[in-house]
Amino acid sequence: MTDAPEGPPPVAAKRRGLFTRAKREEFEARTHAFEEDFRAQVAATRAQIDATNVKIEARTGRNLPLAILIGLALGLALIASLIFVKAIFMIFAAVLIGFTAFELASALRFAGRDVPRWPTVIAGIATVPAAFFLGDQGKWLVTLAGILFVTLWRVAEIARPRHRTSARDLWADIAAGTFIQVYVPFLGSFAVLLAAQDGGEWWALASLVTVVLVDIGAYASGLTLGKHPMAPRISPKKTWEGFAGSVVVAIIAGVVLSIFLLHEPWWFGLIFGVVMVLTATVGDLTESLIKRDLGIKDISTWLPGHGGFLDRLDSILPSAAVAYILFLIFS
């Protein structure tokens, strides 16, 4: 038998082909519509996030997402070095103090004070190993030696014509250099001095965690509830509502850390939290006053979203000194 010649496809086959093509076209149309809708939603969400960030940055002066990322990176590195190897914490602290002393000296030079920057950095870094290896007495001696070193360097610079100035300005330059040594290396090295003590690393960690939480509490409550300026001439963005939020957070953190980290009674946590929030607030306002007198927004722009290192260490510097005093009294 011979095969019958092929004729036109049956009607059912045609319908199945048309149905399959229609389904494919419908599926492609739905997929395309979903993609367009997804892209539109992503664009709208991104625009909303950008608008929110613009509002937050306008109100607080920070790029919040970037500030959080950098803050977490610095915080985790510092905590890890403090817990696992104290010597690494000493190196970490020396780097922070060195950068902070350099940027503050640069800011003062921008304001007209002739502060020798590299001698300031060298003298500042020297206080860190002195505090770690030599203790309290060595820290004081090296700080005084650093002040003398920076002072003599500035006096010796008079021999160069471009560094010559009046006696009054020379004394102002010397005072500025002395201020940097006391404000940054001397106060900052208390954290190293505390960490070097037997069990002191936990006190240093508790003070750092409390100060960070104080900053977060003030930031969150001030952003959501802030209406009444706390010190409008010094720092217009700080409010009493933000301060109240920081006090609540500091007390809770102080009690929790006192019981579970420092193994001290709960009532010590109240003292610890209140003292930390007061010193952190004073440190923050002090740095704001410095920037106001210098006529600048940030000490530097080395840390995107934060400003400079001093903008992050301002609350920690006086708090470290007071935490060491509390350690000597209660530990």
Rank of each mutant, 00 (worst) to 15 (best):
G283T: 03
A172S: 13
G305N: 06
V282T: 12
L278W: 09
I83L: 11
S288N: 08
A204W: 01
E57H: 12
I296W: 02
S288I: 06
N53C: 08
E28D: 13
A47I: 09
I296M: 06
Q137D: 14
I97W: 01
L285W: 03
V115P: 00
A196Y: 02
W240M: 05
P9F: 08
L317D: 06
R312M: 12
T301S: 15
V214E: 01
L187P: 00
A47L: 11
P65D: 09
A111L: 06
A43T: 12
I271Y: 05
L317Y: 04
G17N: 15
A156S: 14
V150F: 03
P161K: 11
F327E: 01
P232G: 12
T281F: 06
A12D: 12
E25L: 11
G222Y: 02
S315N: 10
E35S: 14
S166L: 04
Q137C: 11
A105L: 08
Q181K: 04
R21D: 13
A191H: 07
F330S: 08
S258E: 02
A250I: 07
M276H: 06
V11P: 08
V209F: 06
G273H: 01
A191L: 13
F84I: 10
T60N: 02
I83R: 07
A206W: 01
L194V: 05
A51F: 05
A94T: 10
F243T: 06
F330I: 15
P116F: 00
F260C: 08
R154W: 05
V42Y: 10
R164G: 12
A280R: 01
T143N: 14
V256C: 06
A253S: 13
A156E: 14
P236M: 14
F330W: 15
I290P: 00
A130G: 04
W153A: 12
S106G: 13
A123I: 01
R312C: 10
P161V: 10
W267L: 12
L223V: 07
K238S: 04
L261R: 04
A220W: 05
W171C: 11
G200H: 03
N63Y: 09
S288R: 06
R109W: 08
L141D: 12
R312P: 04
D173H: 09
